[in-house]
Simulated scan of single mutants.
Amino acid sequence: MAATLEAESTLTDRYQTTVPETVRRALQLGKRDKIHYTIRPGGEVVLSRAEPTQPADPVLGAFLGFLAQDIAQHPERLQAIDASLVQRLQALSEGVDIDLDAALSADDE
């Protein structure tokens, strides 16, 4: 039978705490990882490592990183969107209903 580990931490004035090292190791937590809390009827709280809902898209991540770097290095290249372009885009998409949560069809995959 595995040994039970116990740990303790203190809340700050802003209700924040540091996750003790033994807990981080047991849950294999790294920086920026998320923690899931399960609160049971008797007041017991179970901490577990939250699993990401969707895997990160490496191509999209690389593209967004490229954009962020380019904006940081060349902020003078940023331009406001022209009001006439916004009006044109709104006219082109008027009456088009899109469900962003709907699954893609096999043709669109």
Results as ranks from 00 to 15, higher is better:
L89W: 15
Q69P: 01
D107T: 09
F66N: 02
R77K: 13
L78H: 01
H74D: 07
P58Y: 04
L64P: 00
T53F: 08
L78S: 02
L100F: 10
A80I: 04
G65L: 00
P58K: 06
S93K: 08
S84K: 09
L64Q: 14
V86Y: 00
L85A: 07
A102I: 07
D107R: 12
E94G: 02
D57N: 13
F66G: 03
A102K: 14
S105A: 10
S84M: 01
R77P: 00
H74A: 10
A80K: 12
A106E: 14
S93W: 06
A68C: 02
P52K: 13
D70Y: 13
A56C: 07
G65M: 00
R88K: 11
P75K: 04
A102D: 14
P58M: 05
V86K: 05
L89V: 06
R88H: 06
G65Y: 01
L67K: 09
F63R: 12
I98G: 02
V96R: 10
Q79I: 09
G65V: 01
L92A: 13
Q90Y: 03
P58V: 06
D70P: 03
V59F: 05
A91L: 12
S93D: 05
G61A: 14
A102W: 06
A62M: 04
G61D: 09
Q87T: 13
V96L: 15
Q79V: 12
P75F: 02
